[in-house]
Write a protein that binds this DNA or RNA. Structure first.
Lengths: 148, 148
DNA sequence: GTATATTTGCAACTCGCTTGCAAAAAACTT
DNA sequence: AAGTTTTTTGCAAGCGAGTTGCAAATATAC
């Protein structure tokens, strides 16, 4: 716990435990570390990013993957695939549903707190982005699969 | 060439050659086979789908990947990632820009020839889809990377 | 505090995709 | 149309993000 700001650290710790309990996940060191990291810093982070930020050798990469998948499963965490084959993770705040833009060259990521394609693209152009493309996919359960 | 419908086959063949030439790609059997397949059948197809449809042992999987990447590079073909880690490919008709919905259970894919999120989701609900999610990402070149 | 259930670390493995290289096929030249 | 150059292909090995089986360690239940 930080000596400079013990209250904030404590609050995060308590919130993390509360979140894990609500998700029916037992309270373990790796889960607490990973979730509090995602709660404190705004991603989206790759697994590599996350491991780098975790205390040295504090847990195995397999554990990080397993925890993240459980978090996604229970909607604590959201995933994005901004680069092929590399999953990114961020704390899932349903109040602030958003999308991202990644620079094709420097890979800098920005969040977009709006959800209308044309409007977003206009805004991006004003911010100096060029050669803008978007990827939009839908996922759902179809009528056949819904039937009893 | 089909005995039943030689004209149509010939037209596809000519169109494929024209497209390859325009893309500055030399005319080879694998490239012709793959591109004409994508021209005839509407995807999006996985590489496995494509190999299954290609004449038996007509070319190596590495060649399929290489050709598809070249096609994407020259905008002849468009990619989508409807399932994690599996790329899908379809002929890129810029006149008919569209998105897809995949059933989370049976993986059936439908095309959506419209591009406004809310409108699309309303339409999907009417078609019986449940538990609809979408994934929307933007890609572009940021102001810093544009500067000389 | 002990028993039971869950999670972790480790190492081996999976799988979509890529790559190095020699042989084969296109494209270019005259 | 044959010879030369360039590009492409097939093969097999390799890559890397992510997963998994299993025994040991840790959390939870009693």
């Amino acid at each position: 716990m930080s000596i400079l700001n013990p209250k904030k650290e404590l609050l995060t710790e308590l919130k993390v435990i509360e979140l894990l309990k609500r998700a029916n996940l037992s309270i373990t060191a790796p889960r607490k570390n990973i979730l509090s990291l995602l709660l404190k810093e705004h991603g989206p982070f790759t697994v590599e990013d996350i491991i780098r930020r975790l205390p040295k050798n504090s847990c195995d990469q397999a554990t990080v993957y397993r925890c993240l998948n459980q978090f996604v499963e229970s909607s604590l965490v959201a995933t994005t695939f901004l680069e092929k084959d590399i999953a990114r993770f961020e704390f899932n705040d349903p109040e602030h549903h958003h999308h991202h833009i990644i620079c094709k060259i420097c890979k800098k990521i920005e969040s977009l707190h709006d959800c209308l394609i044309d409007k977003i693209e206009q805004g991006l152009k004003k911010k100096g982005y060029q050669d803008i493309e978007h990827r939009l996919e839908f996922f759902g359960i179809c009528a056949q699969c819904t039937k009893p």
